[in-house]
């Protein structure tokens, strides 16, 4: 028997809709306790992947293991240990039932022991700031409140793995931030594994330890978020302040062939370099070696945007 160490292991998973291959032999390993981001443009196959993982759809080829359970052989057990926030989760509540009733129903469907249900619901609703709205029909809540309620529903039975399909889409920036914080604090508190679909780069960058990029059903790239974003960055900005001669520092920077632009802003210069993965140490060395005394040498945080656009372009060109 194969020992599966990772919490979610996706192996050759494939799903066809008529002639369209929505998910095409994908391979992914999601470590236990991680927050994993599946990034991709519209129609890439993200939602289909989640629907396969929670056994709503049947794969045409390959399979996946959730906490060691095969999604094809043990669908009921897989559903027991997963919590799902469907796409447009805020529209998936029973509108005429109250928030409390929605959660109570699902707690029972997920076999939460009857005596623990009230406590569990109160804890979650309080945590999500929804306790005072618990008796309102779900249909009368705001989008943000409904989304958090749907998230409560996914968390109710303390699932080992959470599958969240675009948890912050349709939310305003404040509500989105709140949902991200909630996900992070749950991940910290209970060590659950989160598998999150998104096309929001900055969100994934902020939340996820690991990412994969999917397009046209194929995984184009996967790995550690931090590592990928520096490795694939095509350019990077540095804010530099020096003790005395800013002019000199500026002209040194400009003379370097990997520097693509240099701007002066009051007491600071902003230098843009290409291929930062290989060049960022060279910039500092050049300045120091020519006697410049640095007060500040700040690299602007790398974003996933370059990586994403790069990879999607390559994938799309095929």
């Amino acid at each position: 028997m194969v020992i599966k160490l990772d919490e979610v292991v996706i192996s050759g998973l494939t799903k066809n809709f008529d002639d369209l291959t929505a998910v095409d032999h994908i391979e992914l390993n999601v470590p236990k306790g991680s927050i994993y981001g599946l990034l991709g443009p519209n129609g890439a196959g993200k939602s289909t992947t989640i629907r396969l993982l929670c056994t709503l759809l049947k794969p045409d080829d390959g399979t996946a293991y959730v906490s060691g359970l095969d999604i094809i052989e043990s669908p009921v057990q897989v559903r027991e240990i997963t919590g799902i926030l469907p796409e447009e989760g805020n529209h998936t509540l029973y509108q005429t039932l109250s928030g409390y009733e929605n959660l109570e129903y699902f707690a029972r469907l997920y076999d939460v022991p009857e005596e623990e249900i009230p406590e569990r619901i109160e804890e979650l609703l309080t945590f999500m700031d929804l306790w005072d709205r618990k008796d309102d029909p779900a249909g009368e809540l705001s989008t943000g409140n409904r989304q958090r309620l749907a998230l409560c529903r996914a968390l109710l039975h303390k699932p080992k793995v959470l599958l969240l399909d675009e948890p912050t889409a349709a939310l305003d920036p404040v509500a989105a931030k709140r949902v991200r914080e909630l996900i992070l604090s749950f991940s910290e508190k209970y060590g659950q594994t989160f598998f999150i679909n998104s096309h929001n780069l900055s969100e994934v960058q902020r939340m996820c330890d690991k990412i994969a990029i999917i397009d046209e059903g194929k995984i184009l790239l996967s790995g550690d978020t931090q590592e990928l974003r520096t490795r694939f960055q095509t350019s990077q900005d540095f804010r530099i302040r020096v003790v005395d001669d800013l002019e000199k520092a500026g002209s040194i920077a400009e003379s370097l062939d990997f520097v693509t632009s240099m701007k002066k802003e009051a007491d600071t210069i902003v230098v843009t370099i290409e291929d930062p993965f290989n060049n960022n140490s060279n910039l500092m060395q050049s300045l120091l070696s020519q006697g410049i005394k640095l007060v500040e040498f700040a690299e602007e945080e790398a974003t996933l945007e370059d990586l994403y656009l790069d990879v999607i372009k390559e994938g799309g060109a095929k």
Partner: peptide
């Protein structure tokens, strides 16, 4: 139509 089928079918209900 109410979009509640997906969460319902994701529960351990057989």
């Amino acid at each position: 139509e109410m979009n509640t089928l997906e969460p319902l079918l994701s529960t351990p209900l057989t």
